[in-house]
Amino acid sequence: MTDNETTTLERAESFDRNGRAAYRVEDDEHQSLATTLVTAISELVECDPVDEAYTLYDSVDPEALEKLFSDKHDGTPRTGGFVVFEVEGCRVEVWAQGDHLVYEPAESSELVGKPEASSTT
C-alpha cells in the first residue's frame, strides 16, 4: 500500500454474518471506489495489492461499479441498490448510499478464486 492509498476499516460487529467479521469501509474522496475497495481488501487479508495475482476485475467490472453508483443524469445521487461479490474470499457489499462492507475471508478455501456476484438497483 502506498502513502496516498489509505483506507479506514472500522470493525462493524452489528453486521457480522455467518461467523464472519464485518468491517465498514470509509469512502476516500481522493480515490475511485474500486481503488478504495482494493485497498480495504488488501488491508484485511494482509497482502500488497500491487504484488498479488488477483484483481478486482476478476470479480466485478470496476468501471461498471463506478457507473452503477454515480449520480443520475440530472445530478441527483442514487439512493437505492447494492452489489455483493466475493474477492479473495472476502464478501464485499457496495451500497448506493455509500455504506460499504467487507467481510473477513471465509474459512472455506472453496470461495477463494470463485467470484459470486449479485445486485439490485
Results as ranks from 00 to 15, higher is better:
Ile41Lys: 01
Tyr103His: 09
Ser59Tyr: 05
Tyr57Met: 03
Val102Pro: 04
Gly80Asp: 09
Glu110Asp: 14
Thr39Lys: 05
Gly80Val: 12
Ser70His: 11
Pro49Ser: 00
Asp99Phe: 06
Gly98Tyr: 11
Val38Tyr: 02
Val83Cys: 13
Val84Trp: 00
Lys67Phe: 03
His73Arg: 06
Asp51Thr: 01
Ser108Arg: 08
Val45Phe: 04
Ala40Phe: 14
Leu44His: 03
Gly75Thr: 06
Glu93Ala: 04
Trp95His: 14
Trp95Leu: 12
Ala106His: 10
Val94Ile: 15
Glu93Trp: 01
Glu110Ile: 09
Pro105Gly: 09
Phe85Arg: 03
Glu107Asp: 11
Ala106Gln: 05
Arg91Met: 05
Leu111Phe: 13
Ala53Gln: 14
Glu66Ile: 01
Thr76Val: 04
Ser42Trp: 01
Glu107Ile: 15
Pro77Cys: 00
Glu63Val: 12
Ala106Leu: 13
Ser70Glu: 15
Ser59Asn: 07
Ser59Trp: 02
Lys72Gly: 07
Thr55Gln: 11
Tyr57Leu: 03
Glu88Leu: 05
Ala40Cys: 15
Ile41Asn: 01
Ser59Met: 08
Gly81Ala: 11
Ala96Gln: 02
Glu52Gln: 11
Val50Gln: 07
Asp71Gly: 05
Gly89Pro: 11
Val112Met: 04
Pro105Ser: 11
Thr79Leu: 07
Pro49Thr: 00
Asp51Ala: 08
Asp51His: 08
Gly89Arg: 01
Glu110Cys: 10
Lys67Tyr: 10
Asp48His: 10
Gly75Leu: 02
Leu65Pro: 09
Asp51Ser: 10
Val45Ser: 04
Leu56Trp: 10
Asp71Phe: 05
Val84Asn: 00
Val102Tyr: 03
Glu43Pro: 07
Glu86Lys: 06
Arg91Thr: 07
Phe85Asn: 03
Ser108Trp: 10
Ser42Arg: 03
Asp71His: 10
Glu107Gly: 12
Leu111Thr: 13
Val60Arg: 11
Cys90Phe: 09
Leu101Val: 13
Val50Asn: 06
His73Cys: 07
Ala64Thr: 12
Thr76Arg: 08
Arg78Trp: 01
Arg91Ala: 09
Asp61Met: 03
Thr79Pro: 00
Gly81Ser: 06
Tyr54Phe: 13
Leu37Gly: 05
Glu107Phe: 14
Leu111Arg: 09
Tyr54Met: 01
Val94His: 04
Val60Leu: 08
Leu68Met: 15
Thr55Ser: 14
Trp95Thr: 14
Val60Tyr: 12
Arg78His: 02
Glu63Leu: 11
Val112Ser: 09
Ser70Val: 00
Ser59Phe: 08
Val102Ser: 02
His100Thr: 11
Glu88Ala: 04
Glu110Trp: 14
His100Asn: 15
Glu46Tyr: 08
His73Leu: 12
Gly98Ile: 08
Asp61Ile: 02
Leu65Ile: 14
Lys72Tyr: 07
Arg91Glu: 07
Leu37Trp: 03
Leu44Glu: 03
Val102Ile: 15
Lys72Asn: 13
Ala64Ser: 14
His100Val: 07
Asp48Gln: 04
Tyr57Gln: 15
